[in-house]
């Protein structure tokens, strides 16, 4: 499993991006995108922004409020996209690329066996049958987003941070990496 995480500002401009792999089931936390995947990822993320705009004003509860977590919203080839939208209309987008069994050397030989034995219990991440809407996956992604959101609010509370500025703080990046390691 490889992940590409991106924060999109209110004017559809990218503010932050981070790439990582799964740390679950013996994963080493390193992404396995090929060079062409890397170039393609930003395009996939941006194409899903249209869907975000549709979903964000979708049916809300009777109280006239909607959750920030929009769950799984889009799919392109084997890439699944989940979204969290903050109160200030900033989008967190997570692209998930499940590792196909054909991908050689995804994990070392010994760890490969361990991954196989654990896969059933890991949020429906059975090889080849990754299900973005399974409750365990949704929960994991939600927890990840929530931790990032916490760090995000701290970022925007900084008086030197302006609307739609890029986030360059290494501490923020570290926070995202920690959340990724913890939940994904």
């Amino acid at each position: 499993m490889s992940y590409y995480f991106c924060i999109i500002g209110t004017k559809d401009n990218p503010l932050f991006e981070h790439e990582f792999g799964t740390s679950r089931s013996g994963g080493d936390g390193v992404s396995r995108f090929s060079q062409s995947d890397r170039s393609l990822n930003p395009f996939i993320i941006h194409s899903s922004l249209d869907i975000v705009e549709e979903v964000q004003w979708g049916p809300s509860s009777t109280s006239g409020s909607a959750p920030m977590y929009l769950k799984h919203i889009d799919k392109y080839a084997h890439n699944y996209i989940s979204c969290w939208i903050t109160g200030g209309n900033v989008k967190f987008l997570l692209l998930t690329r499940p590792s196909d069994a054909a991908l050689p050397g995804a994990v070392g030989g010994g760890a490969g066996g361990v991954r196989g034995s654990l896969a059933g219990g890991r949020g429906g991440m059975l090889q080849g049958t990754y299900n973005p809407t399974s409750p365990a996956t949704e929960e994991a992604v939600k927890n990840f987003f929530f931790d990032v959101y916490d760090a995000w609010v701290k970022t925007i509370m900084n008086p030197f941070y302006g609307l739609d500025d890029r986030v360059t703080s290494p501490v923020f990046r570290q926070r995202v990496a920690t959340a990724a390691k913890k939940y994904l």
Binding site: P67, M68, G87
Partner: peptide
Amino acid sequence: LRLLDLLLTRTANPLSSIRPTR
């Protein structure tokens, strides 16, 4: 702009974060 997100995180149940749509 800042208070909007700050006060939304301070709602009763932070994990079910909501935002106003109406």
